[in-house]
């Protein structure tokens, strides 16, 4: 225990890098998922094809392969050297964004047809329909899966240590090599990863509750803070 307490600042530094990579990756993945997901629901052939190509390519290649390509092949092919963290954010963002785009597409398509027909009857424009009617409903449905994907993304950032970024995993490796305490060095990192994930799960539940409340699906006082400790609905499968 003393071993870990002494080295806690180093671990927290590594964890902070992991949190930054996760936040950056989620931001990028979210924008990509929304863009390509909505593109995938358009009626034109071309936008749908663009969306499908993005999803299939970046979902089909492992995040680690994308990252190696960006860190090692891209500088040779183009002459641009990406900073390690930036390459990592791009790789996990592009990868998880492709999973997210499928979720967005599915959630938008699952909004009842009558809702869409009503917007047509009210002579709403496409952007009004999306912003006021379709997305708020789809949002509530996307959130649980987005939560799982965010955790996947957080775990995926661990690979950055392989291209030399000093994240939480890299700190654990240094500790092990420096002290020979394999179990303690890695348990420290694993517990921190676990805690980050738990905080993320709570955050997602908060968002889920807010989304459902705004749609009038749960009463506005809704369960109190303790209610967050239980999943709102039977958790649906994993992220991938």
């Amino acid at each position: 225990m003393e071993f870990l307490i002494e080295r806690l600042p180093l671990y927290l530094e590594g964890a902070w890098v992991t949190v930054q990579l996760t936040a950056g990756g989620i931001a990028l993945a979210f924008v990509l998922a929304m863009f390509f997901g909505i593109l995938g629901t358009r009626s034109g052939r071309f936008p749908r094809a663009v969306s499908t190509v993005y999803v299939e390519v970046f979902r089909g290649i492992a995040a680690l392969v994308i990252m190696f390509w960006m860190a090692y092949a891209l500088p040779i092919a183009t002459g641009f050297q990406l900073e390690g963290r930036f390459a990592a954010i791009l790789a996990v963002g592009l990868n998880l964004g492709a999973y997210g785009a499928e979720v967005v597409r599915g959630a938008i398509n699952a909004v009842p047809r009558a809702q869409v027909e009503a917007t047509v009857a009210l002579n709403m424009s496409w952007s009004q329909r999306m912003r006021l009617v379709v997305l708020p409903q789809a949002w509530a449905q996307m959130l649980p899966t987005f939560g799982n994907l965010s955790i996947e993304l957080m775990k995926a950032t661990a690979v950055v240590y392989l291209i030399g970024v000093a994240d939480l995993t890299a700190v654990a490796q240094q500790m092990r090599q420096g002290t020979g305490e394999t179990v303690l060095a890695f348990m420290g990192a694993l517990v921190l990863y676990y805690l980050i994930a738990q905080v993320m799960i709570l955050g997602i539940r908060l968002l889920e509750r807010r989304a459902n409340r705004r749609l009038g699906r749960i009463p506005s006082d809704g369960g109190g803070l303790l209610g967050l400790l239980r999943p709102p609905t039977p958790a649906a499968g994993g992220g991938k």
Binding site: T157, A158, A172, T182, F186, G238
Partner: peptide, 18 residues
Amino acid sequence: EFIRTTPLLVQLVFVFAL
């Protein structure tokens, strides 16, 4: 739950070292 919310990479390196 612990296994699911921690990175596979760390688990691999950890077990391999043990």
